[in-house]
């Protein structure tokens, strides 16, 4: 059964995406920490021993330190004449392939936080709810250019995309 394996997509996302992910990881960790502090020392619902507290802090710190970089290593994308191919995730890696002829919409979105870093995301949808391909953390100019490119290519491909 040893056939050729799937290779990674060729393009990386913008290096600044790491900052974006770092920020969101930090916010998430602080939120979890806040809840822990609230139910622990403040409201006294749960008694956490000192080593349990230490473990929680270490885990959250590791999450902030490791995950953004890990995401950056995984997130990749590639667009050819006939297909779109993305790779996302960190612990669970998801590779998605969709033929150009099945593309229904191409969305361009700048989140409030992403805009701070001059980033945007491009989402390609198909007729399947399980098949949307998102490329997050692109530089805005690059993302706009990609949207134009995809729109033209999807348009020239015949078929009704269902």
């Amino acid at each position: 059964m040893a056939g050729p394996g799937l290779r990674e997509p060729s393009q990386r996302v913008s290096p600044r995406a790491r900052l974006l992910w770092l920020l969101s990881a930090t916010v998430q960790s602080l939120l979890v920490l806040g809840v822990l502090v609230l139910v622990g020392p403040v409201l006294d619902w749960v008694h956490l021993r000192w080593w349990e507290q230490a473990i929680a802090v270490v885990v959250l710190a590791a999450y902030v330190a490791v995950v953004p970089q890990w995401r950056y290593l995984v997130h990749r994308w590639e667009v050819t004449e006939t297909a779109v191919y993305t790779q996302t995730g960190w612990w669970v890696r998801e590779r998605r392939l969709a033929p150009m002829s099945r593309i229904q919409t191409v969305d361009y979105a700048e989140g409030a936080v992403a805009r701070l870093f001059g980033l945007a995301s491009v989402t390609v949808t198909t007729a399947s709810a399980a098949g949307a391909l998102e490329i997050a953390g692109l530089e805005q100019a690059r993302a706009r250019q990609l949207v134009d490119e995809l729109t033209v290519k999807a348009d020239t491909d015949p078929g009704d995309a269902t």
């Binding site: 799937l6 612990w91 669970v92 890696r93 998801e94 590779r95 998605r96 392939l97 969709a98 033929p99 099945r102 198909t126 007729a127 399947s128 399980a130 098949g131 391909l133």
Partner: peptide, 8 residues
């Protein structure tokens, strides 16, 4: 329509 390869 397309394929997703998902692996933890």
């Amino acid at each position: 329509i397309g394929w997703n390869f998902r692996s933890s």
